[in-house]
Structures are given as C-alpha cells and as structure tokens.
Design a protein around this nucleic acid. Structure first.
Length: 112
DNA sequence: TGCTTGACAGAAG
DNA sequence: CCTTCTGCCAAGC
C-alpha cells in the first residue's frame, strides 16, 4: 500500500512545460499573472513555482515572458526590460507603475 | 535532512 | 495607494 502522503507535488518538468505552453499562448498586448497561470496548469497556490520557472526560461525559446506579471499588474523586480517591452506592444500602465491589468488581463476562455 | 530564498498573493493597517 | 506581515510551496544549499 502506498503511503497516503503520496505526491501531491507537481513533477517539475511537467509543470514547467505546462507553464511554457500557457505563456506562449498569451496574446500580444495582454498579460497574465503568476497565480492565474498556476491555476490554469492545474496547481493552484503554486504562483511562486511559476515565478521560479519564469526566472529560468531559456532565451532560445523566445517566450513572451514580459506578459507575465504579479497580482495587480506588478512588474518583475529583476526583469528590467519588461516595462519597455510591454509598452512596445501597446500595454497601458497606471500612474503607480503597474500594468493596467483591468484592461490588459488575458481571458483565455473566450476562445480555445 | 533542515534552514534559507524567492520573477507570488492577499489581507491588514 | 502604500507598507508590512503572513501564508504558501518547491528549489538551493
């Protein structure tokens, strides 16, 4: 009998690939949050793991990493070009420096 | 194996 | 709106 405390833990490789897939699907000019992505890949409350994955994305994949922001539209503290990249694709910002997430947040259920 | 770190989130003051 | 604090969960050491 397997222990009851069996892996309620995501396989990192699988989780990572799922995140890559979601990020690659974010439309130009729109953004998604770490927490939301964690839900979409099937692992709620794993926002920090999404952040960990994003920090290690290989440049060769050319993923639109700039479209992933923190809750409320907070930008990454280490991805300094994020702001200019988002501005370049039409994302609007609020005076407090955050993305105007109310108008730019991605809603994937619209199509599929 | 145990403690620290982190591209997070949400609530409280 | 901003700062601080707590909860969260896996990676690094």
């Amino acid at each position: 009998m397997l222990n009851a405390k069996q892996q309620i833990r995501p396989d990192y490789t699988t989780f990572r690939d799922a995140v890559y897939h979601v990020v690659a699907a974010i439309p130009r000019g729109q953004v998604a949050t770490y927490g939301q992505i964690s839900v979409w890949v099937g692992w709620p409350r794993h926002a920090r793991l999404v952040g960990h994955v994003m920090r290690r994305v290989p440049a060769e994949l050319h993923l639109p990493c700039q479209r992933v922001v923190g809750s409320g539209g907070v930008l990454s503290p280490v991805f300094l070009r994020q702001r200019e990249l988002l501005l370049a694709e039409g994302v609007t910002f609020l005076t407090n420096g955050r993305v105007d997430i109310r108008h730019c947040e991605w809603h994937p259920e619209i199509n599929v």
